[in-house]
Amino acid sequence: MTEKKHILSILVDNEPGVLSRIAGLFSGRGYNIESLCVAETNDAKISRLTMVTAGDSVILEQIKKQLNKLINVIKVADLTGQDYVERELVLIKINAKAEHRAEILRINEIFRGRIVDVGLEHYMISVTGDSDKINAIINLLKPYGIKEIARTGSIALYRENQTKV
């Protein structure tokens, strides 16, 4: 069976220790977390946790069942294969010497990024998009010397008219 990336959207009680239960479940059972993003929803008692994980279909089924088994997990939805919107935010601090500044700005423009900080020898660029887009701009900027990167990990929602999570 082949390993496949899955985006899970998980609604949980907004309580202390819940994240630890989920992280512990994954480490204890040897499951994979590629990225994890968690914040309160419009209902202050509920948080949404968006996780990118990987595994074959048997593992994925177990992951979803094990998550559902946690008392604080309200709902687990696997967005993969559904119609959804995925976004990730990245901040890239990049060397920007005079001779490269124009090219960097062009790349930034193509990706509809924003310069959020600027110095004599650096830019900080903020870009949002799905993971592929973020990977693409990072690859394009690499040759100029990336100093630091901070990525949020993916968040995602179903498009409307689909089952709500």
């Binding site: 220790g17 204890g28 008392i71």
Partner: peptide, 14 residues
């Protein structure tokens, strides 16, 4: 103890 027993209880509370 809540941290310690998280993986070996059905649920736990502080």
């Amino acid at each position: 103890i809540v941290g310690i027993t998280r993986p070996c209880t059905k649920h736990n509370y502080l």
